[in-house]
Simulated scan of single mutants.
Amino acid sequence: MKEKRAVKGAVYHILVFMFGLIMIYPLVWMVMSSFKPTSTIFQTAGSLIPETFTFENYVNGWKGFAKVTFAVFFKNSLFISAAATIGTVMSSAVAAYGFARFKFRGKKLLFSAMLLSMMLPAQVLMIPQYLWYQKLGWVGSYMPLIVPYFFAIQGFFVYLMSNFISGIPRDLDEAAKIDGCSYAAVFTKIILPLIKPALVTGGIFSFMWRWDDFLSALLYVNKSARYPVSLALKLFCDPGSSSDYGAMFAMASLSILPSVLIFIFFQRYLVEGISTSGLKG
């Protein structure tokens, strides 16, 4: 029996390792290609290790376009992602607290509508949202990329935090009310500290989704100096002339660093938030 278990374990880990290599290979190929001369990237596409390492792609890519360096694009992405993430976490926590702790007329209907909104394709809302933001005069600014997230428009995060709050004993709320705490004080002093894993989990996902968001920036941002990184990368590709794939791969490799670093430093909270919310749901 021990030998069978050992064989099954070995086969399982080998398969997982091979699957992991298949999944990560395109990313590794992109990073290694960023160190190849642009003229040789596709000539030696089958070779992972560059014959000659060069940092010229990073130098050329960082220069950017029209006197706008890639530092500006990174700053734009950081501002959009951070602001939208703050709005998402704050508004989702408040909405989740209302669903988890209060009884009011139409609660089940609103909660069901929130769950249905998670199943609605974003493409369905694209045109009405654009027309609405155009009438508000927001097109051409960061407003459509930031402001809506301060109103709990993403049901996934509300559902995640609501499940987490539902697992917190109500006795803590009652004890705080006996001590004179208001509903706002209970929320800020009792609920928020206890749902820290869920808050961090929502913040990580929100930041990564906003950082990688290409379509929204393409719709609403019309000045190259205000482009986020996800949109600026396409400037390296010019169908009418030659494309600088080396610089594009170099900047794309740098663009994934924030998400990787966030995942590494907050991995403990991410796993705890997902697993705990899943068990309580």
Results as ranks from 00 to 15, higher is better:
Met208Ile: 15
Leu257Cys: 06
Phe164Tyr: 15
Leu231Met: 13
Phe157Glu: 13
Ala217Met: 04
Ile127Val: 14
Leu219Gly: 00
Tyr183Asp: 15
Pro169Leu: 09
Asp173Glu: 15
Met251Glu: 01
Phe265Pro: 00
Phe207Lys: 02
Gly240Arg: 08
Phe156Gly: 08
Ser255Phe: 10
Leu160Asn: 04
Phe265Leu: 12
Trp138Ser: 05
Gly246Lys: 06
Phe156Thr: 13
Asp212Glu: 10
Ser206Tyr: 02
Trp211Asp: 06
Phe214Cys: 06
Val260Leu: 12
Asn163Glu: 11
Ser166Gln: 12
Leu194Asp: 12
Val200Asn: 07
Met251Pro: 10
Glu174Met: 05
Asp244Tyr: 13
Phe187Glu: 09
Gln123Lys: 09
Met208Pro: 13
Asp173Tyr: 03
Ser241Cys: 01
Ser216Glu: 13
Met161Ile: 14
Pro239Gly: 01
Tyr149Val: 09
Ile195Met: 08
Met248Cys: 10
Asp173Trp: 01
Glu174Arg: 06
Phe265His: 01
Tyr133Pro: 04
Gly203Asp: 04
Leu219His: 02
Phe236Met: 05
Ser216Tyr: 11
Leu125Met: 15
Ile127Pro: 14
Val200Glu: 04
Ile127Gln: 08
Pro148Ser: 02
Asn163Gln: 15
Cys181Lys: 07
Leu254Gln: 08
Leu254Pro: 06
Phe249Glu: 01
Phe157Tyr: 15
Val221Asp: 05
Gly246Asp: 00
Ala247Asp: 03
Leu218Cys: 00
Ile127Tyr: 07
Cys181Leu: 06
Ile178Phe: 08
Leu136Ile: 06
Leu231Gly: 11
Ile256Thr: 14
Ile264His: 06
Ala250Arg: 01
Gly137Arg: 02
Asp173Met: 04
Ala225Leu: 05
Phe151Glu: 11
Lys223Gln: 13
Met251Trp: 01
Gln123His: 09
Arg226Thr: 12
Leu254Glu: 07
Ile127Phe: 08
Ile262Arg: 02
Gly203Ile: 02
Pro148Tyr: 05
Tyr133Leu: 07
Phe205Pro: 12
Leu235Lys: 04
Ser242Asp: 10
Met161Leu: 15
Ser162Cys: 15
Leu160Cys: 05
Ser253Phe: 04
Glu174Pro: 00
Trp132Ser: 13
Tyr227Gly: 12
Ser259Ala: 14
Tyr245Cys: 04
Ile127His: 10
Ile204Val: 15
Ala152Val: 03
Ile178Pro: 02
Ala247Thr: 00
Ser241Met: 07
Met251Ile: 11
Tyr245Asp: 09
Leu172Thr: 08
